[in-house]
Design a binder for these strands. Structure first.
Lengths: 330, 330
DNA sequence: TTGAAAGCGCTAACAA
DNA sequence: TTGTTAGCGCTTTCAA
């Protein structure tokens, strides 16, 4: 049985109301009382019960985060930003690893609502009608990060189309013409479709027709990058540069090329996407499209807690130039 | 104002007690009542208030995790295990990124206690007297992961001394004699000291005297791996194999060697520590000491929630053999 | 400046 | 099988 506000009140010879006022910096007590109460709090080692507070305030000072995975660098970088900003604002964060599983996700949403979190951040997850319905009926604020939705939910995200367009154009400007792409999950309309469109348009605009052999699908993972590179080599053997829709896949491609004895960037150039910590550690260091993941995480908390503050929702990207793209002299 | 148990009771023409019983699967109502109440719950979209429950039960079904960092592969792998097991047991997890900052850590502990978490897991953190005092006064169970303490706290951890001994011996058995080490943070008595001892003893046992030049200190990070490798090359130029106290540092070493045109494992062999996801993605794939990080995370929850269940606290390690260690024919 | 008391939404005696 | 009621620890009127 731990110390309650009553114990403090009794010990300090005041009412619980007064202790509460002091605890919450409300007016209504003398300096003398305050000192006495504070001393008692100290002596007793009293810790306010946030659960009781939450019940009455309807505020738990905690926010929930849904994320497909916590152990990949993309998600964990966003998570780090979320955690940091939440901490600065005095909030705690509950993580929910969805594994991209619909039932599990609904489950988590349910749990978060029952625990009365003050807000929810959803990272890299497609919003199904089911999700949206439960989001809508509970009036808890939601912010999407690295994803967006047909439903009216605020989001923070890079312009995938433009970023893919720029990455491809970067390759073209370096003198490349035989460019392939290892895309993400084929069914993923949020991140995969626009990146493919950007890729296609960038090439079309310089008069290159994109054929089926030039694009292969993966699932953003290292392994699928290996497979993707294999496919490209087989179906589009004259490929000299490839745009990968994630750093993980890019590193997979690097691995395969290494194993095959094909040198990067001398023989084949690679550009990735995300600029996670992997990129600079890759051999050779990976040129990639940089997304400000940490900042996106931080800002998502700001947006969540301060919805009037209209943070710009389309986030800037840029090319982080390292050593995997070869320039051809023109 | 959301739906409460009272609303359900009224609507179903029963008392709140009955609704509560049904909600908690306690005996004491007819089938007919149950059906009626369940229907009302459904219709009203009633969601039990976990905060109110927590107040009365003194159980919040949430556990807190203190971790220095969430965006490195070591921590996030452990975290994934924690989250998974917590979810299976119906618990939520609050993450607290300490940044290895003492004040911040105490702060977090305080917040977790105020929020009345049911347990706390501390990952890779040295337990100061300060921490221990606040842990001790609050009677909330604590489990340490990948660290241990002079204070009586249960922990889950690999035997660092033995693992380092085995890694070094592995190198010796492959025919190496000129072996260096890139160790962790010099002041870190938990993970650095025993690994150095293991390294030294393994070499001493085969008649090799370890000199100062053979060991350099880093801080487990990629960058410090680069520096460490530089130092080794300078101070101990005949080095032909190096034992790195983390995969991150090993990958840093790989990077430097690549840049210098020194081939791995032909000229220099590298063995890492942790077997994080980096290891298999490295070029060449990294041979390393494997710790069961995910499982350690999972088991920490088991141990936390089931303290009688004496899980073995010293976890097994093994060498994950890949391509960075060259064998010399004898 | 202070205190009494109601009540947040729920569970758990205790009674019926 | 069911209901009444007293709290859990706190905040917040309202009155003094």
């Amino acid at each position: 049985m731990s110390i309650t506000i009553k114990d403090v009140a009794k010990q300090a010879n005041v009412s619980v109301a007064t202790v509460s006022r002091i605890l919450n910096n409300l007016p209504g007590y003398s300096d003398e009382t305050q000192q006495r109460v504070k001393k008692v709090i100290e002596e007793l080692g009293y810790q306010p019960n946030a659960v009781a507070r939450g019940l009455i305030n309807r505020k738990t000072k905690t926010i929930g985060v849904l994320v497909p995975n916590v152990s990949d660098l993309f998600a964990s970088e966003v998570l780090a930003g979320i955690e940091e900003q939440a901490h600065e604002f005095g909030y705690s964060v509950m993580i929910c690893k969805t594994n991209h599983d619909g039932k599990r996700t609904i489950n988590y949403l349910q749990a978060l609502y029952e625990k009365r979190v003050d807000g929810i951040i959803i990272v890299s997850e497609f919003i199904t009608l089911d999700y949206y319905k439960t989001i809508e009926t509970n009036k808890v604020p939601v912010v999407l990060v690295a994803t967006e939705s047909e439903y009216p939910l605020p989001f923070i995200k890079v312009d995938d189309y433009q970023a893919a367009y720029d990455a491809t154009t970067y390759l073209v400007k370096k003198g490349h013409a035989d460019i392939g792409m290892i895309a993400g999950t084929e069914s993923d309309v949020i991140s995969t479709t626009p990146r493919i469109e950007g890729f296609k348009d960038a090439l079309n605009n310089v008069g290159i027709t994109v054929t089926k052999e030039m694009i292969t699908f993966g699932d953003f993972s290292f392994k699928s990058g290996i497979e993707g590179m294999k496919n490209l080599l087989k179906n589009y053997p004259k490929v000299r540069a490839v745009f990968c829709a994630s750093d993980e896949m890019a590193v997979g491609a690097l691995s395969l090329l290494y194993k095959k004895g094909i040198s990067v960037p001398e023989e084949i150039s690679i550009i990735g996407y995300d600029n996670t910590a992997t990129a600079e550690k890759a051999i050779p260091p990976l040129t990639t499209v940089a997304q400000p993941l940490y900042k996106m995480g931080k800002d998502s908390i700001q947006l969540l807690l301060n919805p009037t503050l209209k943070i710009n929702q389309r986030y800037p990207h840029h090319i982080a130039e390292r050593d995997t793209v070869r320039a051809y002299s023109e």
